[in-house]
Amino acid sequence: MHSKPKVLWIDAVSCYGCSHSFYNYPQIKEILNKIDLIYHPLLPTKEFEIKSSDILIIEGAIKSNFLRLGFDLIDLIAKLIKLSRKVILIGTCSVYGGMFGEGILFNKEDKGKFYKCKDKIISIPGCPPHPEWIAYAIEMVLNDKKILLDSENRPKEIYSYTSHMGCVRNEYFEWKVDAKNFGEKEGCLFYEQGCQGPYTHSSCNKILWNEVNSKPRAGTPCFGCTEKTFPRKDLFKTETFMGIPANIPLGVSKRAYLTLAGVAKSLTNERLNKRLIDEDN
């Protein structure tokens, strides 16, 4: 009988949100049945041992003077990476550092401690990453399929999208109608509430969370949680310069954006300037 690929899932400095996100993958059983899960921080497995693996999954950031399972965390990660064939970094902490320290591949903008291992690493950032992204990375490696990666080792099939794509508030963005308040169906959250949708690499609004929703659809701005800058300061505010957003949607020049915005603002879309569900008529 062919033995199953060995997968070792190790937790660095994390909150276990990546694991709990993965639990929501509807076919998790099918994936777990295909692999030999030699260790996971929460799921039932054998006791932890430093062992070789076909896939090493790392959840969480690295930090010095931090003990994990009785080992120094950074030494432990170095040994496990060396003993693995492929490494999947899940979560923004693990890729860039996120909230809790340094990333494995990057330390925010800079190269990280294990940048030299880049060739065997796949980055799946997100706080947490979508369960389908984690499943995708595992399946692609299991099936030995070629993954097209961008310069930060993120799969292009996931991170070429922005979280703006598929947002139900897109029409408000087109016509430059900003949300007046939280808790309302109407308006785009990009102008006042700090939404990072137009420049956040993620397919959240394409595939949806828990198969039903997304933060912007629930009126919460996208916080750019897949990016190296997460969590930036003033998460609910849009940084502006002379009254216009300081960061312009990906791929557009500032001049082009301002021209388009000016035109859209001068031509009022009356339907979008009133309540979506009007009680009066």
Binding site: N24, E184, W209, N213, S214, R217
Partner: peptide, 21 residues
């Protein structure tokens, strides 16, 4: 998620109420 956008890690409850409608 139907109410809060996603689980885990949503931020739909903010001081003053909720972001969803």
């Amino acid at each position: 998620a139907l109410i809060a956008g996603q689980f885990p890690h949503n931020s739909y409850a903010i001081p003053g109420g909720v972001t969803c409608d």
